[in-house]
Design a protein around this nucleic acid. Structure first.
Lengths: 278, 278
DNA sequence: GCCTGTGAACAGTTTCACAGCT
DNA sequence: AGCTGTGAAACTGTTCACAGGC
């Protein structure tokens, strides 16, 4: 190895891996905490521990930003905070609108970490006339009719959707038409947007299901949690492959499909994500 | 903690890739919608469009579960719903506790998709005595002092933390000590947990920062106008007709670190943001 | 012909281990 | 000595393209 020509691009190559970008906020948070404690420098090892990643990964991540550390010493906390903030675009102000002011929308509006960094809640929007004018987190809720005007007047490019699933796509279309190019979607729906618009989603139900998957696996091993694991009725389902020992318990009966609680998916309307009274 | 090399037991279970597991809930949701409309079968192409992924990926994902489709025809909706539910462990009942009943905790408690599948909110816990006894989503809030008893009595193995960041680790420790082995963390903190405990986190602030990063990029390229891009930014139309079917853009997802030593996962998937010349 | 299932190519990410600076 | 920065290896995930059954 050590093939000569260690000439590096000198400047950050036009592309920080997505996985790295996703970790920068984490490093930033850890660094901010250090900064508040007036810690001047950190080693990759210490910072990695604080961020919950391993040091090699952290160093690799930072290497995509440039060489901001000092060999034999570590990284200058303040400097790194600045560099990462800049890289993430947090040195500028990002007006954000939150659409759908139910419990979730209110929680988001009140979320501190929100305003602390470059983000500023420019407006809260809800379709319920009864909500109009009501103050939430110190901001008066505005009606959906004003959506386009709000986006335009405030130069909003990031929108947060916290409406019921049924309203999400429509709200999304309006946001995009009005100029929003980044959307954070909390509604349990797949949004379709034109090219150039970024959508990230946060889906409670999906996270829980992923946990359940792993939880189920654990139960198969040993020392199960105390719980009542369904009294396990052997399921003797056709075993697909010669899969190794996999927990096979589980009841053949699944949640009633038409129970009282609707779990409407992206149906034409109505679903219950937690927001919107109506 | 020991020096790395504590590679996880390599769970010899029939390995379903983590990325696939993260998408199963998405397929399940799309399938449930089809099921409600009494659609008997779907092709990988149709289902993929509904779930917002590409068909090859979907087929590959399903191939890890077994061969549940019929060549020349497609997949039987009901059968697939059952198989995926089973794989995710949703055919059994998962009592869940939510700790921290503020706006967010209340939103979660009211979240429909929560109870609709195997999940059942077994208890709501809050440290504020003023909250004790108050009904939220039809369930009386209990005091933190009862935490251990609640976990044990209900056989809870999944806990949701929606407390302020400062209380999260402590709550986490108590949950784990009481027997919880899967945690969904909404507090903006890195939780450290012993081996064997799964932690997934949902962090609003991180998602926004990732969006800001991409948003900043977009703004910077407007002037440069490399050969790519420059494409239809002129969407600005009310009707999303143009987009929709074709290469559903979509956005990246999130990835996250691990907590504590160097165990677990904590990163859903990552996916299709790229520029892919079609 | 239609559509699934999958090996193989490709792309992205993590980890290793060490060169090189301080 | 200590610690960063980084090629290269190892691994994970995605896409291609077509074999094979309906």
């Amino acid at each position: 190895m050590a093939t000569g020509r260690t000439h590096r691009p000198a400047t950050r190559s036009r592309g920080i891996p997505e996985a790295t970008v996703a970790r920068l906020p984490l490093y930033l948070r850890a660094l901010t905490a250090l900064s508040e404690r007036s810690v001047p420098t950190v080693s990759s090892e210490e910072l990695a521990a604080a961020a919950g990643v391993n040091s090699a990964k952290l160093r690799k991540d930072f290497s995509y930003l440039g060489s901001y550390g000092t060999r034999g010493v570590g990284y200058d906390v303040e400097y790194l905070v600045y560099q990462i903030s800049r890289e993430l675009g947090l040195t500028q102000d990002w007006p954000v609108v939150i659409v759908g002011i139910g419990n979730l929308g209110a929680a988001l509006a009140n979320y501190g970490g929100f305003a602390s960094r470059g983000f500023r809640v420019a407006a809260l929007i809800d379709a319920d006339p009864a909500m109009t004018g009501k103050p939430v987190a110190g901001i008066a809720v505005q009606h959906t009719d004003e959506l386009e005007k709000i986006i335009t007047d405030n130069g909003v490019s990031i929108g947060v959707i916290a409406t019921p699933a049924g309203a999400a796509q429509q709200v999304c279309d309006r946001l995009v038409a009005a100029g929003v190019t980044s959307i954070l979607n909390f509604a349990p729906t797949v949004l379709s947007v034109p090219d150039g618009v970024d959508v990230r989603k946060v889906d409670l139900s999906i996270e829980l299901q992923i946990l359940a998957f792993h939880e189920q696996r654990k139960a198969g091993e040993e020392t199960v949690a105390p719980d009542e694991v369904a009294s396990a009725q052997a399921a003797a389902q056709d075993t697909p492959g010669a899969a190794a020992a996999a927990p096979a318990p589980l009841a053949p009966h699944r949640a009633a499909p038409a129970a009282g609680t609707d779990n409407g998916r992206q149906g034409p309307d109505g679903d219950v994500p937690a927001v919107m009274p109506a």
